[in-house]
């Protein structure tokens, strides 16, 4: 008896088993299908004249707008300005939140000092603090950096505290029975033990930092991707808005991949890889 190749339905049911691994080719097929599907839908809606260019520009419109922004150097300038603000604000938040978070998750007294304050500030909308920030530090770049800082610091400190609180106590006790003193335990056990979790949360909060971009560039900005989008929306240049969004998406993609790569490279022992 001749056996047919498995039909589409059979193959579909094969890749839809809960929590079961699928072949690499099936995975790539999914990635491809999603990209092609979105692009096809977009092309049909725009070239088919179903949606006006004012609401959704066609792919070629966006490429044209992007080419113009690249040609006059403004896209590079805006991108550089935004990356600068975001990375500066995020790095400052990381430098403070990681050590404080580790202490907060480890020492009950530090937790008592910080947790109520952090949980209070964490819920305040960053945009509501802009008037205060202008009053305190003006309308220059520091104000924009401060927005990113506030947006990430208070979240990151809690995430890091959780990571360090979950370091198994037996790990610390092992170090003590091997002759470690309390001062050894911070650097030799707690810090390395938190690194995989810290690395994960750095990646996640970098993503959050980008979502604050528009808020950061709301006030008195004359460059930056957020400014570019706000400016384009005033003139209803929808194509430029999309160029800005695509650029942010690509940058996010790049940062995420870099963090994952760094995790593998710097922490080859990490149980998370």
């Amino acid at each position: 008896m001749k056996r047919d190749r498995p039909g589409l339905l059979a193959r579909l049911s094969e890749v839809l088993r809960p929590h079961e691994p699928i072949s690499r080719s099936a995975y790539l097929a999914g990635v491809g299908a999603s990209a092609v599907g979105i692009f096809a839908l977009w092309a049909i809606l725009t070239y088919g004249g179903l949606v006006a260019p004012l609401f959704l520009p066609s792919p070629s419109d966006i490429v044209r707008a992007a080419a113009a922004l690249i040609a006059d150097g403004s896209l590079a300038e805006h991108t550089w300005a935004s990356v600068n603000v975001i990375v500066t604000g995020w790095v400052l938040a990381v430098l403070l939140a990681v050590p404080l978070g580790i202490l907060m998750g480890t020492l009950k007294f530090v937790e008592a000092l910080l947790e109520p304050v952090v949980n209070f500030v964490r819920y305040l909308p960053v945009s509501a603090m802009i008037p205060l920030l202008i009053l305190y530090i003006g309308i220059g770049t520091p104000q924009k950096v401060a927005v990113i800082f506030i947006g990430t610091f208070f979240q990151l400190i809690l995430l890091i505290a959780d990571v360090s609180a979950n370091v198994p106590k037996d790990l610390l006790d092992s170090a003590y029975t091997l002759g470690a003193r309390r001062s050894d335990v911070f650097g030799r056990v707690l810090l390395p033990a938190t690194l995989p979790g810290v690395m994960d949360n750095l990646r996640i909060t970098m993503g959050w930092a980008w979502t604050y971009l528009i808020v950061a560039e709301l006030v008195a900005a004359n460059r930056g991707l957020g400014y570019m989008i706000l400016d384009a929306s005033r003139g209803l240049f929808t194509d430029r808005i999309f160029v800005g969004l695509f650029t942010i998406g690509l940058l996010g993609f790049g940062f995420d991949a870099t963090f994952k790569r760094l995790h593998r490279l710097l922490l080859p022992w990490s149980p998370k890889i």
């Binding site: 037996d170 091997l178 033990a193 922490l267």
Partner: peptide, 12 residues
């Protein structure tokens, strides 16, 4: 010296 029931090797 102490050996624990849980796995306590330093993973790093």
């Amino acid at each position: 010296g102490m050996v624990f029931q849980s796995y306590t090797l330093f993973p790093w």
